[in-house]
């Protein structure tokens, strides 16, 4: 057993994460859930904080995300998506729901709408995962930063430009270059 500093999160491989989630799904394994919580909870918190959420709200939504992980674990299909991808979509949907309630406080929390069901899988999840990791790693640090920002915050290119203190044209060309490189790497690995 490793000795962890307090607050430091576990790093676990994709295979281990999958086993943990399957254990939660098949036998409501609380230790497995605790490990998933230790791995993802602190990362989801950063994910929400980057989008401008308060620490209290981020903490609250981390709990909500992990509660849904527990509830929906039996719906997880390892052939379709990696655990990190599946949990990302749960956190993303909760953030969309949260942002809507910010704009319209009369709205009650709902089960967020999922992205429409896919028609058929062309790639195996593992293959797709490997591809995106390779693609991301091949981007320059600046391109990576702008892609990450697109996942963290709902902002227009103009707003991103003023946030980063760089001209709009630079933001546009950085995004375009990053997308072209991503697309090139993804296509070549298929």
């Amino acid at each position: 057993m490793t000795n962890r500093e307090e607050g430091e999160s576990l790093y676990l491989t994709a295979e281990v994460l999958e086993k943990l989630l399957v254990a939660v799904a098949t036998r409501q394994d609380r230790d497995a859930f605790g490990s998933l919580f230790g791995h993802f909870g602190p990362r989801i918190k950063t994910f929400f904080r980057r989008g401008g959420m308060s620490p209290e709200m981020a903490e609250e939504l981390v709990q909500e995300t992990m509660l849904r992980v527990w509830r929906k674990a039996s719906h997880y299909d390892p052939g379709r998506a990696a655990v990190s991808t599946w949990i990302f979509t749960i956190a993303r949907n909760l953030r969309i729901d949260f942002n809507r309630r910010q704009r319209d406080p009369s709205l009650l929390p709902s089960d967020p709408v999922d992205v429409p069901p896919s028609i058929e899988d062309e790639l195996l999840a593992a293959e797709r995962d490997e591809n995106v990791r390779l693609a991301l790693a091949k981007l320059s640090p600046e391109q990576q930063a702008i892609i990450r920002l697109s996942y963290y915050i709902e902002k227009s290119q103009t707003e991103i430009a003023s946030e980063l203190g760089i001209p709009l044209g630079t933001v546009k060309s950085r995004i375009r270059l990053a997308m072209n490189r991503l697309r090139a790497v993804l296509d070549e690995d298929q």
Partner: peptide
């Protein structure tokens, strides 16, 4: 689905922020 997988990869690489001790 590919861009969702990219989101998964980004989440995986996001540096952790400590949660309160009683979060779990």
């Amino acid at each position: 689905r590919t861009f969702e997988a990219l989101g998964g990869a980004i989440l995986e690489q996001t540096e952790p922020t400590a949660l309160s001790a009683d979060a779990l």
